[in-house]
Computed example of a mutant assay.
Amino acid sequence: MKTSAADTPPRKRVIVLIAAGLSVLLLAGIGVYGLIQGPRTGPPPDNSEADGPAATAAPEDGTQTPGRIVPVERSSDPETFARNVATAVFAWDTGAGFMPLDYTAVVMEVADPTGTEQAGLANDLAAYLPVREAWVDLRQYATTQHLEITDAFVPEAWATAQAQAQPGQITEGTTAITIEGVRYRAGVWNEKPVASEHEVAFTVFVICEPAYDTCHLLRLSELDNPLR
């Protein structure tokens, strides 16, 4: 893996570009609210579904033993890796014996190994998962979630950012991939299976070759506020 000072460009990421050239990006009309302002600290808007008929009463016949959360599949292709990350972020099962931080830890395993963006990424992920209290409520209904990706593309706003960046502001190999898809939730309510679906969109910021032999995750945009 190319991590030495000689092989790796300076660790100036897209976040540095936004911080240093914010006025330029705003003039360009790039929708990066999630990265500028930071992710939401509260639960996602539809967490309230957990309290209604979108979830289920779990059986009272014992505690399920945790198995293993599927790790994020690595790839050297930016789009493939972004799709793998998106799938992992939205895939969870409240009845599997894990908590939100367990799912966060799995995604963090593919984060930028320099650690530059890891604190910000952890906050980003927290906005995509139910808070602990909501998770406990969802567990009563054996709620599960997964994502069906309908499109993945490099947004035009990213090309604009690259064109406006000064040399060295964006590390070579850094890419933004906007993901569009449908988030599905399923559970049991009054002993009957129920389900809900909701269209979502967000941007995954990754860094791949030539900085690293395989892609790593930098940040996530605010949910439903992607780069276009």
Rank of each mutant, 00 (worst) to 15 (best):
T80F: 06
G21L: 09
E180M: 08
D102W: 08
A157E: 15
G31C: 09
R132D: 14
H216Y: 15
Q166D: 11
R40P: 01
G95L: 05
A88Y: 00
R11S: 03
G95M: 07
D151A: 15
L35K: 03
K2H: 11
V14E: 07
Q140R: 13
V24A: 12
T94C: 07
L147Q: 02
T41C: 05
K2Y: 13
G31M: 03
G120C: 04
R68Y: 06
A127G: 04
E133M: 06
I170P: 00
P59I: 09
V206N: 04
G187S: 04
A159V: 07
L25P: 01
P155S: 09
L217P: 02
A163S: 12
V200L: 10
A211V: 01
V14P: 00
G168C: 09
G67M: 01
F205H: 10
G21H: 14
L217Y: 12
A126G: 05
A105Y: 04
A127H: 04
E60P: 02
L218K: 02
L22H: 08
E209H: 14
A163N: 09
T56Y: 15
P59S: 12
T174D: 10
D112S: 08
R219D: 06
V110I: 06
V70R: 14
A157V: 02
V16R: 11
G181E: 08
G95A: 15
D112K: 07
T174P: 03
M108N: 02
Q37K: 13
A186P: 00
P226E: 09
G34Y: 02
T203I: 10
P71R: 14
P45A: 14
T175W: 11
I15F: 10
R132N: 06
P167N: 13
V182H: 06
T116H: 11
P71N: 11
Q169R: 12
I177V: 15
V89D: 03
E222I: 00
I36C: 05
A96F: 12
